[in-house]
Design a protein around this nucleic acid. Structure first.
Lengths: 228, 228
DNA sequence: GGTTCCATTATGTGCACACAAATTACGATC
DNA sequence: GATCGTAATTTGTGTGCACATAATGGAACC
């Protein structure tokens, strides 16, 4: 019959959901499950590893595998390039560069970049438009060392998109929050001052050093969906 | 020396980041890589599968493996039980039940639950407190069919926490957005009317049917962090 | 009683092999 | 030239085995 690892996962999941094994309880060893379900231990291992990665099981060597006491919901979502996200909704995309200049960053950003005082970074501000309406306003600091000669024309391609396809990144950090639009932001995004904006702050690193930090302000009405 | 699959992943990642293989380009087959790097194809397979799951590679049978053209950033975050999140910050936790009654849901919720008109759902509203200060206000609709007899005392345990540990869930949906606090919400959360609130809306399902839908309003200042 | 050490045990992972599944490339046929 | 069928290729996965690694529990010892 040939049971696949996904079948094993399904069966284990069924038992968890049916409270066949209570939360916090030990479940049989891989070997026992393999014998019971009629497959190799490798196959059980893969299924259990997958469920553990999903947060449903907790596994420790020697201690065994137990059903997670607090099934942490581990949500995942994709962060597409803004252009693709907008075009994916069937809208036309455009990017409007508001500002591009060298400037000394505020202390918080400077310490983040671990750059010595007096060294300017590249300051970029721009607006992403969907069907010619403001959709996303970005304020960015960028380490000019990553730019080639000649520098890309950010009036034609958004910094985000250029970075994604030209600079190898190795890590970073991302956080979401909500903020009231200040008058200038409201003006740029074409919304009322004080409107609640969905904010995404990102720091992108390469080889352990920050390359760029950006604050993305979404126009009112934006929703970020994730899968459980 | 014994190369582990994580070593292989690291090496492949290095080559991607070093633009050794350009975005969109085909990379060698598993077999070729296994021979070159001196390990079994299984090991290469695991490494490449992992990178593909992370969105860095695209793999298709027979077509081979290529470096993703648009390295979609796939972020993951854990959604802990609110109590654990607050206690994890070293603050004391408390839950205050504001309202519990049977009520007919608005049309949008009724259609979501696919419940016939006239059948009431359980309406719950409550406030999560961190160090006795409002942290999270929740408005929930709950299918009373999942409740045992006697029903749990939601003055003692928050609906969220009770559900997580007593009702097997199989899926759901989650979305984040921002909203201005209406006067009542501002009063409950102890913030200014109109303040930008971070909103989390969740629908939880079991066996394909919605069990509960909830709108979570975080007090101003909340940040949701994720890992890239 | 407490500390150290070690055997036991469950998971983690590598390997060689086999076959399955998908998709492409190519050749045969019309 | 277009269409169809088939073979070749690449990834996907199962199996049995071996050994590595970590954590546990208890024995030995002070």
């Amino acid at each position: 019959m040939a049971l696949g690892w996904e079948d094993i996962r399904t069966e284990v999941l069924r038992r968890i959901e049916a409270r066949h094994w209570a939360p916090g309880a030990l479940i049989p060893t891989e070997e026992a499950l393999a014998e019971e379900l009629g497959c190799a231990r490798t196959t059980v291992n893969r299924a259990l590893r997958d469920l553990a990665a999903a947060g449903l099981l907790e596994r420790r060597r020697k201690a065994g595998t137990r059903v997670a006491l607090h099934p942490v919901r581990r949500a995942r979502f994709d962060i597409p390039v803004t252009r693709l996200e907008i075009e994916g909704r069937g809208q036309s995309y455009a990017f409007h560069l508001i500002e591009e200049r060298r400037a000394e960053p505020p202390a918080a950003v400077a310490s983040l970049f671990r750059s010595p005082p007096g060294v300017p970074l590249l300051r970029l501000r721009g607006l992403h438009l969907a069907d010619n309406r403001p959709a996303l306003y970005e304020e960015r600091w960028l380490d000019p060392a990553v730019l080639p000669e000649p520098a890309p024309d950010f009036r034609r391609i958004s910094p985000n998109e250029w970075l994604v396809s030209h600079v190898p990144w190795t890590g970073g950090d991302i956080a979401f929050s909500a903020a009231n639009a200040c008058p200038e932001e409201a003006d740029i995004l074409g919304c009322a001052p004080g409107a609640a904006l969905f904010v995404c702050e990102r720091v992108t690193e390469a080889e352990g050093r920050p390359i760029t930090s950006v604050r993305l302000l979404h126009a009112p009405g934006y929703r970020l969906r994730a899968d459980l």
